[in-house]
Simulated assay, not measured.
Amino acid sequence: MKVTLIAGSNRANASSTNLLRYVESLLEAQQIAVHFIDLSELQLPLFSPDNWDFHPNVKHVLEAIVDGDGLILATPEYHGSVSGALKNALDYITGNQVAGKPVLSVSSAGGPLGVSSLSHLQTIVRNLHGINCPEWISIGYGMNTIGPDGTPLDEGMKERVRNTVNSFVGLTLKLTAATGAVN
C-alpha cells in the first residue's frame, strides 16, 4: 500500500506539517510506503484553467496522487478555511485522480480546533469524488499540543491520532481490496 501525504502550508516549520510528519512515522511503522509532499518546499504556480501545460512540480504532485492508494491532506486553518497553498494544489486535481480513494483530513488552528478548515476540505474531496475518512485530526496550535517533531504532547491526543490513522489505514485496505488496485 502507498499513501500520499500533502502538507498544505507554505510556512516553514508549520504545526500542520509537523503533525503530518508524525502521521508519516505512524504509517512507516506499519510498513506502509509514504510519499510526502511539502508545499513549502515544492511550490506550485497559481492554477489557471487556461493553462494545462503543467509545471514539473505540479506534474510531480499529480503523479504522487495517482500513484497512492490513499491521500492525507494537512492544512493550517486560515480565516476558517484551508490554506491558499493547499487550495491551489487541489485546484489542479481532476475527479478521476482521486475518485474512489480514501482521504484523511488533518488541520491545525491558532484556536482550540480547526473544524471549519476540515469541513471545507472534506467538501472539496467530495467534489473530487474521493471518499472522506469518517474521522479527522484537528489540533489547536495555540495550546502547545504538539512537540517540534509533531508528536502530540497529550497522551489522549496521541492515542486519538493513532486511532484515526489506523481507521484510515483500515478504510484504505478495504477500498483497495474491493477494487483490487493495491499499489
Rank of each mutant, 00 (worst) to 15 (best):
E24R: 03
E24A: 02
E24Q: 09
L26K: 14
E28K: 08
E28H: 04
A29C: 11
I32E: 04
I32S: 00
V34C: 02
H35A: 10
H35E: 14
I37F: 05
D38I: 06
L39S: 02
L39Q: 07
S40K: 08
S40V: 11
E41T: 06
L42F: 00
L42D: 03
L42S: 07
L44H: 07
S48D: 15
D50E: 15
D50I: 13
N51P: 11
D53I: 06
D53P: 03
D53R: 00
N57V: 02
N57T: 08
N57G: 10
H60P: 03
L62P: 00
E63G: 03
A64V: 02
A64W: 05
A64M: 01
I65Q: 05
V66Q: 02
D67F: 10
G68T: 01
G68P: 03
D69A: 07
D69K: 06
G70T: 04
L73R: 00
L73T: 08
A74K: 06
A74T: 06
A74R: 02
T75M: 07
P76Q: 10
P76S: 12
Y78F: 09
Y78C: 11
Y78N: 12
H79L: 14
H79R: 13
S81M: 14
S81P: 10
S81D: 00
V82E: 08
V82M: 06
V82H: 03
V82R: 00
S83E: 09
G84M: 14
A85T: 14
A85C: 09
L86P: 09
K87D: 12
K87H: 07
N88A: 09
N88D: 09
A89S: 13
L90I: 02
L90A: 01
D91H: 12
I93M: 15
I93Q: 08
G95I: 10
G95F: 07
N96L: 13
N96R: 12
Q97P: 11
Q97G: 11
V98A: 09
K101S: 09
K101Y: 10
P102H: 03
P102I: 04
L104T: 05
S105I: 12
S105P: 05
S105Q: 05
V106C: 07
V106Y: 08
V106F: 02
S107W: 09
S107C: 13
L113H: 13
V115W: 08
V115M: 00
S117A: 15
S117V: 11
L118Q: 01
L118R: 01
S119I: 13
H120D: 09
L121G: 06
L121H: 03
Q122H: 13
T123L: 12
I124M: 08
V125H: 01
V125G: 05
V125D: 02
R126M: 06
R126L: 06
N127D: 13
H129S: 10
G130D: 03
I131S: 15
N132S: 01
N132D: 07
C133D: 06
P134N: 07
W136V: 12
W136E: 07
I137R: 04
I137G: 02
S138M: 11
S138Y: 11
I139G: 01
Y141F: 13
G142H: 10
G142T: 10
G142A: 07
M143D: 13
N144E: 14
N144V: 10
D149S: 04
D149M: 07
D149Q: 01
D149T: 04
T151A: 15
